[in-house]
Amino acid sequence: MKEKENKEKEEKPRHPLSEVFDMYIRNFSAVCAMFVLIVIIILAIFGPSLYPTDPFEMVWMPFSPPGQEGFLLGTDYLGRDLMAGLVHGARVSILVGISAAFMSVVIGITIGALAGYYRGTIEEILMRLTEFFQVLPTLLFSMVIVALFGASLPMIVIAIGLVSWTAVARITRAEFLRIRELEFVMASRASGASDFRLIFSVILPNALPPIIVQAALMVGSAILFEAGLSFLGLSDPNIVSWGQIIGSNRQYILDASYTVTVPGLAIFVTVLAISLVGDGLNDALNPKLRRR
C-alpha cells in the first residue's frame, strides 16, 4: 500500500488535494453522506422558490395528517403546511449552523494559536479561559444570553459560537505546540519572519487538517444546538427553522406526533450526513492516524 503510494509520488508529483479526494472517494458511506448533504444544501438554497407556500400561512385545517388533502406532510396546530416549514426552515437551520461554527472556529483558532505559539503566561491564561468555558453548562449559558439579549438570529449565532469554541482551541494549541518545533518553522524564524507571519502563514496552514474536520463536525453540533434552543422556545418567532417547528408544536405531540417527529428526522439526517462527511474527511486528511 505504502510502496504503491510512494511509487505514484515518484512518477508525478500530484496536487495534495487530489490525493485527499482519492482517499475520500474510497469511503463509501462518506460519499453517500456527501451526496445527501449536497441534496439538502440545494434544497435549502432553491427550495423556497420551488415550494413558495408561506410556512406561516394557515392553508388548511389544523392537524390534517400527512399524505391527505394534498399536503405531503400534513398541517400543524395552526393549519400551516409542514412541508413548507421544512423547506423554508432548512435554509435557516443550515445558515445558523455554518455561521455559528465559523464564529467558534475563528475564536478557537485565535485562542489556540496564541496559546500554542507564545507559551508561558499567555498560554496559561488562555487555557484557563478555555477550561472555564468547558465548565459552564453550554446550553444554559446560551439560554441566558438569548433570554437577556433577545432572540434574534444574530444573537442566537453569537450565543452558540461563544460556547462551542473550546474543542477547536484545544486542537489548535496541540497542533501549534507540535509544529512550532519543526524544522521548517525554525527556518522561517531564522530568515526573519514576523510572529504574525509565522502564526498565520507558516504554522496555521499545516495545523489545518484536524481543525477542518472539527469545523465540519461543529456545523452539525451547531444545528443541534439551535434546534435545542428553539425547542425551548428561544428562537426568533418570525423566522422558521426546523427547531422552531418542533418547539411550536411540542405541546401537541399527543394529537399530531408527525409535526414533531418529521422536522426532528430532518435534523437527524442532516447532522448524520455532516458527521459521516467529517469522518470521511478525517480519514482522507490524516491517513496516518487511520486506525483499523
Binding site: G220, I267, F268
Partner: peptide, 15 residues
C-alpha cells in the same frame, strides 16, 4: 448518539 437531537429521541421514546 451524535446526530439525534436529544429532545427528538425523548419524544420518540415518549410516543
Amino acid at each position: 448518539g451524535y446526530a439525534a437531537p436529544v429532545f427528538w429521541t425523548g419524544i420518540l421514546l415518549l410516543i
